[in-house]
Design a protein around this nucleic acid. Sequence first.
DNA 1: AGTACCACCTGACGGC
DNA 2: TGCCGTCAGGTGGTAC
Length: 270
Amino acid sequence: MKIGENKFMPELPDVEVFKRYLDSTSLHKTIKKVEVKDKKILEKTTAKKIKSKIEGKKFNDSKRHGKYLFINLEKKLSLMLHFGMTGFLKYFKNMDDESGHSRILFTFDNGYYLSYDCQRLLGKVRLIENISDIIKEKNLGPDALSIDIHFFKDIFENKRGGIKSALMNQKNIAGIGNIYSDEILFQTGIHPKAKVNNFDEILIKELYTKMKNVLNTAIEKNANPDNFPKNFVIPQRKKDGKCPIDGVALKKIRVNGRETYFCPKHQEKL
DNA sequence: AGTACCACCTGACGGC
DNA sequence: TGCCGTCAGGTGGTAC
């Protein structure tokens, strides 16, 4: 992946792809060396601690919750990775192939490297004991792929406010960001400014189904918009983008301060 | 509770 | 050509 050509916007599907990439490249190898190249991405830890806790150990397995990735090293020791908006992982053999904004570099005993790259330094890396502590501390809701319909319905119970911010609020559901919330609303025909208190049972169920479908499909396609089905709007989130269903020009508005694309013809449900 | 800001950051882009 | 302002987007903080 070339610098500046990063197609990933680290929301749930992207982080799931990172997880699978990590699992297939970086597990069960002794980590000879860890180099923190920019400590701005560290949260409640130091480069020294990262080094002393990780060197000599192995990544055993990983878990994802929302946009967070947790890599287990041993009992009571995991590495938390959050990718901000420009983060990704890269596994490579030659240092010539190191990505342009490598912030932490792991060296394995097989001669390969794993880099945590984060151009805008908005990501976070931290040493933790338990995943559940972090979910509690950050007040994260259930993961969008494992949330059941009853929890999902709670988002609409006794609440006001807009659907887009409700979907993006990590305390309600973990994993959905600006890009995928647009896709989910597009697929359900819901206007991005719709208010949650107007949602009836049928629409909530439909939204739930489409949410899972959009996220699972994106993962299946490696979170690469070039591979997305023809009826997805994400590849059209750009200047002169057209609705892949109606062919009309997409509208670009701001919702809760976020750039939002929608089809004025079929996203009418308020 | 919900909204409306700001800050953190870098680099791409448009205006002049 | 090059300088400068603006803005993307996740999270977290504050103020209303």
